[in-house]
Simulated assay, not measured.
Amino acid sequence: MKSLPVLLPEAPALRPRTLPEWSGNPSRCLNARGALVVCLWLAFSCAAAQAAAGAGKPGIVETLLKWTPLLAGGFVWNMIISFVAISVGTALGFLLGIAQISPRGWVRSPSWVVTQFLRNAPWLVLLFYCMFLLPFRVQVFGMVIPVPDWLKASVGFALPVMAYVAEIVRGAIQSIPAGQWDSAESLAFSRAQILWRIIIPQGLKRMLPAWMNLYAIVAMASTLANIVGVSEAMTVTREILAAEQRQELLLPMYAYLLAWFFAYCYPIARITAALERRWAVAG
């Protein structure tokens, strides 16, 4: 008996999507050219400031190096705030994303409303609400525990992170082919077993690049905490400029701070781009 011919898919359909097809993430902007631009801008700022500096004043590079330990201390708080925000937001957002695909309307509808509200609320407004509405201290078993400003700022950033993580989780789960659900149902798996044992493990690869992009955004947005009085890198930079009282130091100081954030976020962007290329799904 003759075997029937089989038409194979076209070759382009077998190839994974390449990075340029992905949009809306920092990994497309943070590349080698961006690193070169940041380095050139820092060098230009230092050179221009040195030319404008009067005789007898310390050199610009020397001044930047002198304040580097203090700036590093402020930058540590940016990393702490971003880490706490992404941790809390991921934990809550994962549950919120699962709730959005619930077959029960009384679970799905409120979770959708919360997600849309937090996604479309300005980050700075949420930050101010958390700073002024959260208590300055809490009493636990008769002990008064102060709530530091950096922790309240972390909660303020965690709220929009929760909404974006919920969308990442929902999108990743819904991107899994429906045949996976049907096959598992035919094997008598319950919905919970299908979700946690089959769908979510496959969706994690789709969630991770977007989640890493989100963390890079949160790390860069953590400088907003200086507006509410948190002593992070931006606040420390302003204090350094106030202490030096040198107008020519303005550009190189902020360029130096920009280089710090670029050096921190650049590896995250490159890893994200590599994961996108490796785990991209054919369209």
Rank of each mutant, 00 (worst) to 15 (best):
M143P: 00
I145R: 09
P146A: 13
P146H: 11
V147G: 08
D149H: 05
D149K: 15
D149S: 14
W150P: 07
L151W: 00
L151S: 03
S154K: 09
V155G: 04
G156L: 10
G156P: 03
L159D: 02
L159Q: 04
P160S: 07
V161H: 03
A163Q: 05
A163W: 02
Y164Q: 14
V165E: 11
R170E: 12
G171V: 03
Q174I: 09
S175N: 13
P177K: 08
G179N: 09
D182P: 01
S183N: 13
S186P: 00
L187M: 15
R191G: 03
A192C: 06
A192P: 00
Q193M: 13
Q193I: 03
W196G: 10
R197G: 11
I198G: 00
I199D: 05
I200P: 05
P201Y: 08
Q202T: 09
Q202D: 07
G203T: 13
L204M: 13
A210M: 10
A210W: 01
W211A: 10
M212L: 15
M212W: 03
I217V: 15
V218I: 15
A219V: 14
M220S: 12
M220K: 15
A225T: 15
N226G: 00
N226A: 14
I227E: 14
V228L: 10
V230M: 11
A233R: 01
M234D: 05
M234C: 00
T235C: 00
T237R: 07
